[in-house]
């Protein structure tokens, strides 16, 4: 049912992606793959706003991080099953997104971005102060909860399949959203907001719903991440984390379906393999960012799509 909206090249790309997810854990460290999938889903959620509504949320880590905290807390202190933890992360992030989004979409362009950044910094501050987040310590030693209450996830491969399923469901849900009647209106708003208004669309309502959907998915992605690593920490709510997801999208190709996923693969791979070199990670990322802006502005997937004249 979902696949009906995919074009042929997209179906092939989807098949490749699913195949990689299925085969990769044989060759690559599964936890590393799971990290990529969490950040890829987060990047896709961000792309829903930047790529399809034209909204640059510069504080998306707030929702991802809040998802991390909620899910970790629910697993550690309430002993909730895994799927409820992830869902809870999404719901709380979406509730926060509804309030912050309603404030931010009153303004356009750079002002929208600045408000989202300010609200994210505000969230960061709260996270350093509130008791439930553990402040500087974060929430550590989170036990892996059971899936549906009885399936153990303590084995890395067990939780791997859960993460893979949630990632794919989230990915397909975003694809559906951008190819729905709602998505058509979003694209119209992206292309020409005053015109959409003049056709009788209350654009703020559409933007807010998109914002809430995006923050829900971002929160769920965060919720998965803290279950995988057994920790929720301040680093997931920093502005650097928000910036990284912008970079991920830019690199992969914003406004493309597969771009954010490719971006997440590149960014996390660099981080993983360059980590022994310390600050070289940041320098390399910076250089790539510069190269991206100067040479391939549409991102990897965007450039590929333009080269072969297909929408990926």
């Amino acid at each position: 049912m979902f696949s009906l909206g995919f074009t042929r090249p997209q179906l092939i790309a989807l098949a490749v992606m699913v195949a990689v997810i299925a085969i990769a854990p044989m060759a690559v460290y599964p936890v590393f793959m799971m990290k990529i999938m969490c950040f890829a889903l987060f990047a896709c959620a961000f792309n829903l706003l930047i790529g399809y509504v034209g909204l640059l949320s510069f504080g998306h880590a707030a929702y991802f991080g809040m998802g991390c905290y909620l899910s970790a807390y629910a697993a550690k202190h309430w002993g909730f099953p895994a799927e409820i933890c992830v869902l809870l992360g999404g719901i709380v992030a979406a509730a926060m997104g509804a309030v912050f989004g309603a404030i931010a979409i009153k303004r356009q362009g750079i002002y929208f971005s600045m408000i989202t950044l300010a609200l994210a910094q505000f969230t960061y501050f709260l996270c350093t102060q509130m008791a439930f987040t553990g402040g500087e310590d974060g929430i550590q030693n989170v036990p892996r909860p059971f899936l549906l209450g009885f399936l153990s996830l303590s084995n890395d491969m067990a939780i791997y399949w859960m993460v893979a399923v949630v990632f794919l469901v989230g990915f397909l849900a975003i694809f559906r959203i951008i190819h729905s009647p709602f998505g058509q209106v979003l694209k119209a708003i992206r292309e020409n907001e005053p015109r959409a208004i003049s056709l009788g669309y209350r654009v703020d309502d559409y933007k807010l719903l998109a914002f809430v959907l995006s923050t829900f998915i971002a929160g769920a992605a965060g919720g998965m991440k803290s279950l995988v690593f057994g920790i929720a920490s301040l680093s997931d709510v920093t502005w650097q984390a928000s910036g990284q997801i912008v970079l991920t999208n830019l690199l992969g190709g914003m406004g493309t379906v597969f771009g954010p996923v490719v971006g997440a693969v590149i960014i996390n791979t660099l981080e993983f393999y360059l980590s022994p070199f310390g600050s070289w990670v940041t320098i390399t990322q910076g250089l790539i960012f510069v190269a991206c802006v100067m040479v391939f502005r549409r991102g990897v997937i965007g450039e590929l799509g333009a080269r072969f004249k297909v929408a990926l």
Binding site: G5, S180, P181, F182, V185, A196, L199, L209
Partner: peptide, 18 residues
């Protein structure tokens, strides 16, 4: 997009654009 207005509000993000 303009004709779509005739459907009322298009908040149905779960439905296919078909």
């Amino acid at each position: 997009v303009a004709l779509q207005r005739g459907r009322g509000a298009s908040f149905d993000f779960w439905r296919s654009e078909e």
